[in-house]
Design a protein around this nucleic acid. Sequence first.
DNA 1: GTTCGTTGCCTTTTT
DNA 2: GGCAACGAAC
Length: 679
Amino acid sequence: MARKYTIESTVPSGPGGTIDYKAELNEQQYAAVTSLLGPSLVIAGAGSGKTRTLTYRVAYLLDNGIPPENILLLTFTNKAAREMLDRVEQLVPHETRSIWGGTFHSIGNRLLRRHAEKVGLTNSFSIMDREDQKDLMAASIASVGVNTKEVRFPKPEVLANMFSLSENTGIELQEIIEARYPYFEELHESIDSVQTAYCKRKLVTNSADFDDLLVLTVRVLEENPEIAGYYQSQFQFVLVDEYQDTNWVQSQFIDICAAKHGNLMVVGDDAQSIYSWRGADFEHILEFPKTYPKAKTYKIETNYRSVPEVLELANHAISANARQFEKTLKASRPQREQLPALIALNDPATQASFVAQRVLELRDEGIELEEMAVLYRAHFHAMELQMELTNRGIPFNITSGLRFFEQAHVKDVAAFMKLAVNRRDELAFKRIARMLPGIGAVSADKLWRQWLKSPLPKGDSPPQSFSAHLTSFKVPLKANSAWQQLSYTMDELLGDDGPASPEEMITSVMGGVYDDYMRSKFPNYDNRIQDLDQLKRYSAQFNDVTEFLGQLALLSGVDGGPSSGEQKKDHSEALTLSSVHQAKGLEWRAVFVIWLTEGMFPNARVLEEDDDEESGLEEERRLFYVAVTRAKDELYLSYPYMWPSSRSGDIMQRPSRFLDDFPGELVEEWEVGSAGASW
DNA sequence: GTTCGTTGCCTTTTT
DNA sequence: GGCAACGAAC
């Protein structure tokens, strides 16, 4: 007699979730969240609950019995991805971990790892960051043999930009050069061959740059219908956040993934498209109804974030732009009876003390530091402010240009791990070699040649031992003992049985040669050790080194994971300093936008480009719009009259043209006098 | 020939 | 604080 036994499912099937969608969403949001099959475009203005709409949409799908693994949710930042998935998890009782959610690059990475052999890589390929890319580019230029001394040849960084733009937009390199770099047109043949060399080198070193994570993935899908078919069946529902910032490759990727089921929901705000320099084209969102004729369009226009005073200013600021979807943001909050402030200051230092002082006042009035932010166009605009805040002892978090992973010591440690799993990684090898005393670029290259001749880089499975081969290398006398030590560290990375875990690897590296190097190289040894300890703790959640390295490379310091910055550790309560780009999607009760002068914001380089000046300027204006719409209650717009510059004396500043886009009565002008100064 | 510290100039935005 | 060019020291 067989016993009947059923496993209770924890997932309720069919409708029957606990969410009262109608009550928790407004009418426009509700319509979008509960839309049925087929493509849909959601135009969601700033502060209108875009994230809310997307998360409820995912919850709605799960509540209706869609298995999590059949949902693909694409975002631009890790932060957005994590935030949404966390919220979904809190919202519904279903299992949410198997949702395919993440940034374009992380999803691309995931797919590419699985099918790397289709494009000539192995599944342990290394991911290169910008610096690695530059190094490899420099090597490629050298290998092609152009005389960079005689002709003014583009720098590695410029070339990387060129290639990247071409790949991200799908426009031929030739055309990119003509349009954006006409002064290099005569060199296009050498540039072409550098590109060929660069691509080849990436394969030889088993490495991929950021763009490859998408470009190669799209290629895999295009060239292998059976693979594409598999994922197309898998992804029943595709959701895309910040659609206005998608570029050509990304939109291709989206289109391929959604090709079978056609249930594609894209959410965005054309007024917040600020990534055209990365190849983003907000034509994608404007043209979506044409690309998908069956698409339903939903507009979400009620703003829950800002007081009407801020919103009115924002609406005026953006209306100067010609190209956009018609929409008006309606305020839902009551009047505050306080206008945004416009403050002209003497110089950047005064501007900094104004901000600092006002921040303290606001804190006394009950706004906590983490409810305030200072936003600016470029990172160096925050220099004076950082000094002022430090002097006054006001804690702050800065989303600096340098990400956690890009800091030298983190990259150093990662290089060991990279080399352990990808023994063809030339950059990692040379980085390690150059840490040893008396070894510079030249010796590192000689060592690399010896490495290539040894059996180490060959084959896919890890060697029995590194030291067995390394100890016989010819190294400069000065580096001898360090080299021995290095060999044994590398052995430790192999692990006793099976590959060592990321955590074990970091421990080995920090205990080996690297410790000596750090002491001699970095004045702030202790801080860096703390960083690495944090990295180690973070790594504990990973079993697989490749996975860990992939995460690390795709993680920006600002949004989660291990974070840098000494201020942060001691004060959970801190003021935020951020570029406008990195502030997208965030909000604070009080927002300061500083350096609103011609040349700074809008940026001078954009003003100089006169080929299609308007589009550049419109993007700057959208950027200003993004900045302004971050504010919930209070908004301060400030600029200095004078910019003391070391080389050309004081430069008079003109107020930004964006300040003319709205009527004067929308702001209150503050006259700031300095108590101690005499003029 | 190679490494490594010093000096002076410049600073867009990022996965 | 980063980067390139220069020059001293090894």
